[in-house]
């Protein structure tokens, strides 16, 4: 669906050249939700703006399907953009228009519909985002979550095949964030719409995304399926972004080892084993007794999964035999002796 190749973009700031994007490449499959995460200043905002060329890269190409966006003349690019929806952190609604007027706006830009058809489409979209009762209100009369729903309805108006979300939930409280994420997941399923989102919040990635790229200083430092990145993070930046979620906390191992002085096991559960009494079962079979040190059990998108760090207090079998025993139960075990 999207193929980004060797994208670079520099800004000059007070005479210095700063790389906002440094040779970034990534692929997004049709129908998936792709997350790009990084701290502020990592370049993710520039990257998503390069996907619809609101920002022109210095070099590199962006392909959408078979069409090379970066090679399109301005007029054709404007036409193509009508079918790339974009949702913004600060909503960016027209204050001079009502809710219905805002959703109608992209239809007016595209042309080709009669006023009655536009009205019908607006009603349909407001129904979809649950704002049918607020049609005639002004944006200033809406809550943040409602404003973002208008933003989403507006972005969907011209039947886009790609939806870009620029920190769409960063200005919202946690509860509203959940409802907006649920709406996006719904839209992704219902319309089979490809979504690319940027965020600094790992929760958003965990709840919504299939694949993720982690950005730091204009580079993609890690990418992969969300499960892999959460459970086996490779890069320090990823681990630090994961800190608040409880996943992937490898660097704490040394601290634990020093403190309790016994061998440690890192157990990773994905799917069914997460919900089974695996530790208990293995304990009975092998006399393994463990001391639970840290861990998290959660869901990534809809897959239950978890990661536990345990200290081995006693075991009837040799430690190197444990990974295989756990593997039989579908649990990945690493011995950190």
């Amino acid at each position: 669906m999207i193929e980004v190749r060797n994208l670079s973009k520099h800004f000059s700031h007070e005479g210095r050249r700063i790389a906002a994007l440094d040779d970034v490449s990534l692929q997004v499959a049709a129908g998936e939700i792709y997350g790009i995460i990084g701290r502020s200043g990592a370049g993710k905002s520039t990257l998503i703006r390069c996907l619809n060329l609101l920002e022109r890269p210095d070099s590199g190409t962006v392909k959408l399907g078979e069409q090379e966006l970066t090679a399109l003349p301005e007029g054709e690019l404007q036409l193509r953009r009508q079918r790339i929806g974009m949702v913004f952190q600060h909503f960016n609604l027209l204050r001079s228009r009502t809710v219905a007027g805002n959703v109608r706006f992209p239809l007016e830009l595209a042309g080709g519909l009669t006023p009655a058809q536009m009205d019908a489409r607006v009603d349909e979209l407001l129904q979809l985002v649950g704002l049918a009762d607020h049609k005639e209100k002004r944006p200033s009369q809406l809550s943040g979550g409602q404003k973002q729903r208008v933003g989403i309805a507006r972005a969907l108006a011209n039947h886009p095949d790609l939806l870009l979300c620029d920190e769409a939930t960063s200005a919202l409280d946690p509860e509203t964030t959940d409802s907006i994420l649920a709406l996006l997941a719904d839209i992704n399923r219902q319309l089979n719409l490809t979504i690319v989102l940027i965020t600094h919040d790992m929760r958003v990635i965990r709840q919504l995304c299939d694949h993720v790229s982690v950005m730091d200083h204009g580079k993609v430092v890690e990418k992969g399926s969300v499960l892999d990145v959460f459970l086996q993070p490779q890069h320090a930046v990823t681990r630090s972004l994961l800190a608040e979620t409880g996943f992937g906390q490898g660097e704490r191992v040394d601290a634990w080892r020093a403190r309790i002085g016994v061998p440690l096991l890192k157990l990773t559960f994905v799917g069914e084993p997460t919900l089974s009494p695996v530790l208990d079962k293995v304990g009975r079979e092998t006399g393994l007794r463990v001391n639970l040190l840290s861990g998290t059990l959660s869901e990534i998108r809809d897959t239950p999964c978890g990661q536990l760090l345990v200290g081995v207090v006693a075991s009837d079998v040799e430690l190197p035999a444990l990974p295989e025993i756990f593997a039989r139960e579908g649990v990945r075990c690493e011995v950190l002796a």
């Binding site: 690019l77 404007q78 036409l79 009508q82 974009m86 913004f88 609604l93 027209l94 992209p106 507006r154």
Partner: peptide
Amino acid sequence: VIEASQSMG
């Protein structure tokens, strides 16, 4: 708001 309208073509 201007950027949003540009993004809509």
